[in-house]
Amino acid sequence: MAGRVEIVMEKIRIYGRTEYPGKVEAEALVSEKPLQGFTNVDPVQGFTTERLHPLFRVPYTGKVLVFPSQRGSGGFLKYGRGNKPAAFIHTESSSLNVLCALEAHVPAMTDFERDPMEVIETGDMVFVNADEGYIEITKK
C-alpha cells in the first residue's frame, strides 16, 4: 500500500509573442467560435451579444479570454473597454487584436509555439506572463 499520495500540480508552459505586456493569473474562458465585436459585444455587462454564439451572455470580465481568432467590425475593440477581460490569448492575429489591445492595456499574447486552443479549457487557471513571453496553464 502506498503510504503517501503526492499531488503534483502540473503546469503547462507555452511560449508566444507578446502584444501587450503585463502579468496576471485568472480563470480561463474559452470561446470555441471566433469572437465578434461592434453590436455583438456589450462592454458594460461584459459579454458577447452575438445570437447563437456559444458564449452568448457568458461573462468574460476578469477572465483570461481565450479564442481562436476574431472577425468582423473594427468595433472588436469594445472587448477592450469597460468590464474587460484580465488578459487576451488568441491563436491567429490580425489588425482587430491591435485595435483591442490599444484600448484594453491588459496582457495580450498570440503566435504561440503550440495552439493554446488545444490545451486550455474553460475553468483552467492561466498565468499570463506577457513580460517574459509565455503562458502557464494549470488544469482544473
Binding site: 465578434q36 461592434f38 453590436t39 455583438n40 459585444v41 456589450d42 455587462q45 459579454f47 451579444t49 452575438e50 445570437r51 451572455r57 468582423g72 467590425s73
Partner: peptide
C-alpha cells in the same frame, strides 16, 4: 443580418 440583433442583448426582447 448578423449585427442588427446584437443591439438587443436582452433575452426577452429578441
Amino acid at each position: 443580418a448578423n449585427y442588427v440583433t446584437g443591439c438587443y442583448p436582452d433575452i426577452d426582447s429578441k
